[in-house]
C-alpha cells in the first residue's frame, strides 16, 4: 500500500509538468495580448507603450526563458504576480478559494443528503411510483442548468420578497447569518443538479448490488431489509457514487462560472474566465495547475477510499 501511495505521488509530477507545458503553450498560441487588452482602447496607444509594458511584464524575453523562470517559481510554490493586477497570485487565489471551497462543500452536502436516500429508495422500490418520482426528480435535475435555477431563485426573491441575497462575501466565522444568506441559494442550485447525477448513480449501483449473491445469502440468513441495505448493499454500492462525487467536487471548485456570475460570487470560476479574457498568462497558468492538482488529489483520495469501502480491493 505504501509503495502504491508513493508511486501515485511520484506520478503527479510528470502529470502536472505536462499540464504546465500545455497551458503555457496554449496561452501564447491563442490570439490576443494582455497589453492590447489593457491599453488598445486608449486614444494615445502606440508601439512605444506596448514595448514598455511588454518589457515590464517580461514578455519580451524568449519563450523558453519565460517558461523556465515560471516553472522554477512553481517548484518553490511561488506563482509570481498577476500580470493584470500586479498582485501576488497566491493572494488572488486565496481570497477566492475560501468561497469556492465553501460552495463546493455545501453543494456536496446538499447532493449527498438528497442523492443517497433518494437513489436507495428508488432502487428498493424499483418500478413503483416512488421510483418514478425519484427518476423525474433526477432527470429534471440533470436537464436544469444550475445557473438557470439560480436565475429563477433570484427572480422569485425579487418578485415575491423584494429581496436578493447579499452580493458581498462575508466569511462564515465573521457573520454566519450573512454568510449563509448568500451561500445557501447557490449551494442549493448547484447541489440539486449534482444530487441528480449522484442519485441516478446510487440507484443504478444499488440495483446491481441488490442482485448479488451475498445479498441473497444475507436475506436467506433472515437479516432484515434495513440491516441488509445499511451493512451490505449501500457500502458496496458507494464505489461508483464516490467517483462521481469526487469528480463533481473537483469540478465545483473552478467550474461554476455562470452560477458565480448570477449570484455575483467572487469565486475561482469567475476569476479563471476573467483571466483568460484578459490574457493574464501567469494567473491562468496558476489556476490550471491548481485545478489539475485538485483533480489529481481528489482522484487519489477516491482510490484510497475504495480500499476502505471494499476489503477485496488491495493496491500493490
Amino acid at each position: 500500500m505504501h509503495r502504491y501511495i508513493l508511486h501515485r505521488l511520484l506520478l503527479m509530477i510528470p502529470t502536472l509538468l505536462g499540464v504546465a507545458v500545455i497551458v503555457f503553450v496554449l496561452m501564447r498560441v491563442i490570439p490576443g495580448d494582455i497589453v492590447e487588452m489593457r491599453f488598445a482602447e486608449g486614444r494615445f496607444f502606440n508601439q512605444e507603450l506596448v514595448e514598455k509594458e511588454r518589457a515590464r511584464l517580461g514578455l519580451d524575453r524568449p519563450l523558453w526563458r519565460q517558461f523556465v523562470d515560471w516553472l522554477w517559481g512553481v517548484a518553490r510554490l511561488d506563482f509570481g504576480l498577476s500580470m493584470w493586477s500586479g498582485g501576488p497570485i497566491r493572494h488572488e487565489i486565496a481570497i477566492r478559494l475560501q468561497l469556492s471551497l465553501q460552495l463546493a462543500l455545501m453543494a456536496t452536502v446538499v447532493a449527498i443528503l438528497l442523492a443517497i436516500p433518494l437513489g436507495t429508495v428508488a432502487a428498493l422500490w424499483q418500478d413503483t411510483w416512488i421510483d418514478y418520482v425519484v427518476r423525474v426528480f433526477s432527470i429534471a435535475g440533470l436537464a436544469t442548468p444550475s445557473f438557470w435555477l439560480g436565475i429563477l431563485m433570484f427572480l422569485c426573491f425579487l418578485i415575491i420578497f423584494q429581496w436578493i441575497p447579499p452580493m458581498v462575501f462575508t466569511p462564515f466565522w465573521q457573520d454566519p447569518w450573512q454568510n449563509l444568506a448568500q451561500m445557501t441559494w447557490p449551494a442549493l442550485a448547484v447541489g440539486y443538479r449534482y444530487s441528480a447525477v449522484a442519485a441516478r448513480m446510487t440507484r443504478a449501483a444499488m440495483l446491481e448490488v441488490l442482485r448479488e449473491d451475498y445479498i441473497r445469502t444475507a436475506r436467506a440468513k433472515g437479516l432484515g431489509q434495513g440491516r441488509i441495505v445499511r451493512h451490505h448493499a449501500l457500502k458496496n454500492a458507494m464505489l461508483p457514487v464516490l467517483t462521481v462525487i469526487g469528480l463533481e467536487f473537483a469540478f465545483l471548485l473552478g467550474g461554476l462560472v455562470v452560477t458565480e456570475q448570477v449570484f455575483n460570487l467572487n469565486g475561482l470560476g469567475l476569476l479563471f474566465v476573467q483571466s483568460v479574457a484578459r490574457r493574464d498568462y501567469t494567473l491562468v497558468q496558476a489556476l490550471v495547475l491548481l485545478t489539475a492538482s485538485v483533480y489529481i488529489v481528489v482522484n487519489f483520495g477516491v482510490d484510497l477510499l475504495y480500499a476502505w469501502l471494499d476489503p477485496r480491493i488491495r493496491y500493490q
Partner: peptide
C-alpha cells in the same frame, strides 16, 4: 462608499432592483 464589483449585467440590475446598490 462601497464599490461593489459586479461583472454580470443581470446581476447589476438585480442589485439595483433589490436595493443592494
Amino acid at each position: 462608499y462601497r464599490a461593489l464589483f459586479i461583472s454580470d449585467t443581470a446581476a447589476r440590475v438585480a442589485a439595483l432592483r433589490g436595493e443592494r446598490a
